[in-house]
Structure formats: C-alpha cells, structure tokens
Design a protein around this nucleic acid. Structure first.
Lengths: 340, 340
DNA sequence: CTGAAAGCGCTAACAT
DNA sequence: ATGTTAGCGCTTTCAG
C-alpha cells in the first residue's frame, strides 16, 4: 500500500489532523511543525489520495461539461471545443478538473439525474443545445451549481453566459460603414437562428444610427449553407441598385456569397465588400480571405469556468449575461481602412 | 443527508453487504431478495454515492486524456477533438468517465507524476505530442495503465495505436491509378513529418506495384501551408511533362495545389486529378470539392478507448499497432470512376 | 445465499 | 497550536 497520512503523522510525531491541516494550508499551524511535516512528506514521497479526499470532503473539485458529442462534431463545430479548451484552462488554474460527457435528447434527463444524485461532480457546464424545460426543473430542484454556455431560447431561471451577438452585428456594420461602403445588405441565417437574429439587430442599429435607410430588398434570409449563400447573393446581384457591401450571418453564407460574386463581374473588395462572423478555418483559405467579426469562444469558455467556480462559492449567485465581446479580424474581403 | 446504502438495507431488511452486491450485480444473490432490494432502491430514489464507491474500490472508473490545449487548437487541429469524442463515446459505453487535462513541455512530468500518485484516474490516454523519454520512464515505473494516440517517433515500450498511414497512401495511389491517371506526383509535408513519410511509402508501394516509375521530378516536399502547396504545384506545372495526378500529403497543400491549378489552363479533374488525406471542413468548400482518403480519427479514439479498458483488465497487455483504416471520400477533384 | 466486521485515507467539529 | 474522535458511504473478506 502506498504511504498515507498516518505514516507522515507518525514520522513527524504529530497527529493526522495536523498533517491534514498542512496539506490544506490551514494557517493555524506553526511554521516550525508545518515545515517539518512538509519535509517528511517530501522524504516519504507522500501524496494525498485524491479519492479519499473527495470522499471525506464530499466534493471532487471536478466540473462536468455536457453536450451532445456525435461523430464529426469536431469538424462541424470546432467552436464547441475551442470553448471547452478555454473552460478547461480556467478550471485548471484553480486546480479543478474537467470531465466531459455526452447526452442525447432521449437520455439527457436520466443521465443528468444520475450524475447529480451520484455526486460525481461539483458543478456542471451545459451546452445550450441540451437545455430543456425539463432539465431546468431538474437543475433547480437539485440546486445543482451550473452554467449554460449560450443563451437559452426561453426565459429561464438558470445561469448562462453568451457572447454579445448584437454588439458583434453592430461592430460589423460600423466597420463596413467606416470603410466607405454605404449600400449595406444583410444575409441572415435561418429565421429562427437566434444568433443571426441578434446580429441583425446590431447591424440595423448601427445602420440606423448612421442615418442610412435599410433597403428592404437588401435583407435576405438563408440558412447555414454555401448554396444558400450563392442563391441570396445572386438575388442581390439581380437588383437594379446593387448593394456595395454584404454582411453575412455566418461563414457558409459568406463563402457562397463570395462564390457568386466571383462569378459576377464585380470585384471583392473594390466593388463589393464582404464581412461575416466567426473565423472558421476556411475563412483564411478563400481568395480574398474573409474579413470577420470573430467571437472569442475560447474566452467564452474561460469565463464560463470562472463563473462556475464563483457559483460554487456562492451557490445562490445567478449569472445571466452577454459577456464575451468580439474582435475584428481584418482580412481582404473588405477595402483597406482609410487613414485620415 | 441523502439516502444511503444503510437506508436501503434497513428498509429491505437485509445487510448493506447484500445491497452492495445487488448494486454491483454480483450473482450470488437470490432473485427474490435482489428484486426486492431493487424496488426499495427505486422507492427511496437511492443512487450509490460515487465518491464513496471510488474510495472503497480504490478506482474511479475514469480515464484521463492528456495533451497540450492552447488557444485556437480546436480550429487548428479539429482531429484531436474528433478523436477525443470517439474516445469519450467508447468509454461512456462501458460506464467510464473521461476527464481531460493539458500539459506543457515544462510541467508535463510533474503534473503526470502528481496525477498518478494521487490516484486520480484509472488510466491515461496520451496524445503522442506530449510523450517524451522521461514520461516513458515515469509511466513504466508507476506501471500506469496507458495508451498513446499516435506512434511515437522513437522505439518505445509504451502502448500506442495509430492509423495506418502507409495503407492510406497506398489507397490514394491505387484509386488514382484506377481512374486512369498514370503520371503521379506526390507533394509531401515537412520531411520529418512522420505521417507524410508513411503516406509516401504507401504511395510508392502502390505505384511500383503498378509498374509505374516515379519520376523524381514528381516528388516534392513542402509543409502544411497553402503557400507551399501553390509553390510546389507551380514547380510541377513548369515541367515539360506534367503529371496528370497529384497526391498531396495534407489538406493545406492540396488547397494550394488546387489554387495553382486554377490559375493555370489545366482543368481539375479532367486534365489533372488531385487527391489528399483527411477531410478538413474546407475540403468540401472548394470547387471542385476535394477527393480525400479520410482517416477515421473518431474511430481511432474509439479504439483507444476500447484498448485502455482492455489494458485495465490485463495490466501487462501491451498494444502497439496501426489499426484504424481509411475511407475514400469520393469528391470532385478526381475523375469519375469508370464503369466496365 | 447472506451478514458481520473491518477497512479505504482523509477531513472537520470539538476539545484541550 | 495541536490532538481526539467520529465519521464520509461503500466494498470486501471471511464466516456462517
């Protein structure tokens, strides 16, 4: 058997309690004994058994990340993992572990129920896509420390954080306007894509503030496919007065729009500017590369980690906020900034 | 306090031992008492406390995944996370948990040392990039159940699994040849990129088998960038006798090669076929879409999960093998298969 | 087929 | 500042 706290206590001539206090940096131990114990621990190569600690403390210093992990998800949604990495790093800094699990619509409730009642983890970070009314009820009933990554569609008593899509939209529009473009079009995602909707709100706000009237022909909705980007862009190109800048709600739309533009006789970025949100890997593989408003999802994860640790300390703290801001990634689908 | 095994035992009129045996499906319990106990557990909504189980069993039914998780890694290396998902799903199937951690070159040894001595997890899956001689020594000394994802560069006593890059190379070449192309060029990655090297070996093998002589002008090396793909392709296009098919060791090279081809007067896939390895998200956003030999990294992770669980059962089982095979993804940068 | 009893290694009131 | 003592909830050997 490995060396235990008893061995250390024996050798140091103190009680296990004292050793425990040293392990946990409880300051009521005199420097003399404290350092003596420490040296004994070194000497014996003692390391506290985490399983015993977890058990005695009734806490495992571990946070669980819950989402739905299907095949190909890392390719289709790298953002989720970038967030996960941010989350991990924030937790690691405070010596918390991160475990991940996958649930489906079907097994979500029973799985989470089990996880909560088995006291496997101290807190749970949910991806917004797994959150349901039923889950909300469960979490609230069990008073499980939690935070949701992303803003749920319905009003909720749960804690969540999200990036500020409206602000990102505003940012995109303001930047485009600052470059001298002024016939701004917006190609949105699916009409009930909440992120796209907020982005549009931000765009509209910025445009209105600039005293520009949004031509209703310039507002189109597609989905998240290249094809729909092509189609919508062609629609714009068929107008008598064409827009000179297009804001696409997502990368795929932008890719399609770019394709359609390249098949036209208009030049990007000279005649038409193109800007979109998020920087998917291929945003830099196009020609020209895509100017984007990049959501820092790593930071989102990091903030989620910091938040859940806060909540662990103050269990009735409720967090609901759009925190993470965006950065402009200056690329070549828009004109160069003008110096004045 | 929550309901414990004692409560169940009391209510069912048996000892805690018996309840424990039911929990753990130990078959020496009569069906009668077993089912009675089960119904009591339901009634009381009893769930065994995992922390107590872990402690008593001296095992946590948890596997640790170790790699280096820096910002942007999910975008730059989605494969790693796809593997992670496969790993997770294999473990979840056997009721094992997965926790992840990040190490750096500097803190790797001390961190892993701590993790092992604190008995935090039952087994560790390492990404090959964190493996060093020193780590090998540590793992072997502590007899830590482990598996490495990827084949280490040096001969090792550790267990590892990897995908079969040589076979993938063979596959790519054979497919290209079957389409009627016969002046095959290979643009490799960095010369000490082991994956690229194996892929080339496979390609060479297939070509030789088909009695085709590999023109030495047709063998070029770049790295993992679009630019180097462009440059190498231009080099090929400058030859008197140009290749009619190009195998690129990675997606970025292929992207660059495609770009260079599009700027030439050769058509893809009619005049020149293009094939590469792995399917990055942008492999389907190019025009034409890229034909690839896709390594199923999800499957690699899944196999790693199954392997580590095997090793947990048979601690001196050593696994070293190229397991995961590849699939052809038929896309449009190569001619259509001929029917006969 | 079932139960008694002895841990697993550490923590945390409470006392001194 | 340090020690006493009583758990934390489950597993497991061994006996019946």
């Amino acid at each position: 058997m490995a060396v235990t706290i008893k061995d250390v206590a024996l050798k140091a001539g103190v009680s296990t309690t004292t050793v425990s206090k040293v392990i946990n940096n409880i300051p009521t131990i005199s420097e003399a004994t404290s350092s003596r114990i420490r040296s004994v621990m070194k000497e014996l190569d003692y390391h506290p058994n985490r399983r015993a600690q977890n058990f005695a403390r009734q806490s495992s210093r571990t946070i669980l990340y819950v989402s739905t992990l299907n095949k190909n998800i890392a390719f289709n949604n790298p953002h989720m993992f970038e967030t996960l990495v941010g989350l991990h790093n924030a937790l690691a800094k405070k010596n918390y572990g991160l475990t991940i699990t996958s649930v489906t619509k079907e097994n979500c409730i029973s799985l989470i129920e089990e996880i909560i009642s088995q006291k496997i983890v101290d807190g749970i970070v949910f991806h917004v896509s797994v959150v349901s009314k039923e889950l909300e009820k469960l979490i609230l009933k069990e008073e499980m420390p939690h935070i949701i990554l992303g803003c749920p569609e319905h009003k909720t008593k749960l804690s969540w954080i999200d990036n500020n899509n409206a602000l990102s939209g505003e940012m995109a529009a303001k930047y485009i306007l600052s470059l001298g473009y002024n016939r701004i079009a917006f190609i949105g995602g699916n009409k009930n894509d909440i992120g796209s909707t907020y982005r549009f709100e931000g765009v509209l706000h910025a445009i209105t503030q600039a005293n520009i009237y949004l031509n209703e022909d310039y507002l189109l909705f597609g989905d998240s496919s290249i094809e729909s980007g092509v189609a919508r862009m062609k629609q714009l190109l068929a107008l008598k007065v064409k827009p000179d800048a297009v804001i696409c709600a997502n990368n795929y739309l932008a890719l399609g729009a770019l394709k359609a533009l390249q098949e036209s006789d208009l030049r990007v970025p000279e005649d038409v500017g193109l800007i979109t949100f998020d920087s998917y890997p291929f945003a830099t593989t196009t020609n020209p590369t895509l100017t984007t408003v990049d959501i820092d999802v790593y930071d989102l994860g990091k903030q989620a980690g910091e938040s859940i640790l806060q909540i662990l300390k103050k269990p009735n703290l409720k967090i609901q906020s759009y925190r993470t801001l965006a950065n402009l990634v200056y690329n070549h689908s828009t004109r160069l900034p003008q110096n004045d």
